[in-house]
Design a protein around this nucleic acid. Structure first.
Lengths: 197, 197
DNA sequence: CCTACCGATCGGTAGG
DNA sequence: CCTACCGATCGGTAGG
């Protein structure tokens, strides 16, 4: 209801567009694709739903755009954290910590990463998967370089690691362990598997 | 469109109810709560949406009922599989294999276990969580008895294990590894952590 | 189990 | 950015 009228007007159009994107990202992240209506986004932005169509093309396009931005931004941060480590296991640890940090930040436009594959229209899903594949390739490379025992299937290992990291947002609550500490826990569980050198 | 008219009529009402439950369970599992309309369920049952209300009270009640039945049935199967093993790690292995089997069967009414927490009305979510807590207690007991290293947080370990097992349905595709083999992989990843006795 | 309908909500648009 | 509206779809009900 209350809106701050002190928004700068320097570059009105694109700045307003950014505001709307951030609002939409938060709502999508919290309520999912279907649970977030154009009118919901408008309400938080202080306008009626229809008015948003000056800034967005469609709900689908907005969702895909936010999802892919978030994924690319996350991939970049993780790649940087991994690059700072030489040991494969330390790369895994850095990746876990970074992704956990991203996933547990409720206010970042980077958060969404919504795995709501089922609740999204087919056409949207296809675009989501395409972008996600690139993200998963990052983890495929990471897992490829780990010295894992022979009886561990790397494809399964990677899928488990990824789905685990993605679902942390479902049960993470601030206050107890920090994202970094949880990341370390993930690392410890997935790590001990050195082959008996 | 085609319906088999050879349905027995022995106990018409309750048998019909069971049919509708199975149809609804499959749709909910595949399309989620919001993605499944009463009319969708009716269509698969060969009737109009409104006609279902002779057999169900509401969409919410139907969903909660199916969810809780699935959860209780799964908990029972897992408890039995665990009871057949004495060693704590073998209990974990049995639990992983059984849950994986349940989660990857696309035709079982037991499957749904839908973690669509976000797309469900608040009132429904509260009822879902209540039942899920009991299910999670089963795993809490399992994890409590594992001889884990001191630097592993059992609460995190359990959350990771559960969210991992639940999200397998997102990427599992029949053909490659069997559910049991995947269950064994999960077991291997989560196991190696014996403390240096 | 159907016909016929309800009130609500949805994404989106025309026209200003 | 609003008014006013569209066609579609939703869960659910009355009355037979």
């Amino acid at each position: 209801m209350l809106e701050g009228p002190n928004t700068r007007q320097r570059d009105g159009a694109s700045e307003r567009r950014r505001e709307i994107q951030e609002i939409a990202a938060q709502l999508f992240a919290r309520k999912g694709y279907r649970g977030t209506s154009i009118r919901d986004i408008g309400e938080k932005a202080g306008v009626l739903g229809g008015s948003l169509y000056h800034h967005i093309k469609s709900k689908d396009a907005l969702f895909v755009e936010l999802h892919n931005e978030a994924l690319n931004s996350a991939a970049e941060r993780i790649a940087q954290a991994m690059a700072a480590q030489a040991d494969p296991w330390e790369k895994l640890r850095a990746a876990c910590r970074t992704l956990l940090e991203i996933q547990s930040d409720p206010n970042s436009l980077t958060l969404p990463m919504m795995n709501d594959f089922r609740e999204v229209p087919d056409k949207v899903r296809a675009e989501l998967i395409e972008c996600r594949d690139k993200f998963e390739a990052l983890f495929a490379g990471l897992v490829r370089d780990l010295p894992l025992p022979d009886d561990i299937d790397r494809s399964i290992y990677r899928n488990l690691l990824l789905s685990l990291l993605n679902s942390v947002a479902d049960w993470y609550r601030p206050g107890r362990l920090s994202p970094q500490e949880i990341g370390d826990q993930v690392y410890r569980i997935f790590r001990h598997h050195c082959p008996p050198a």
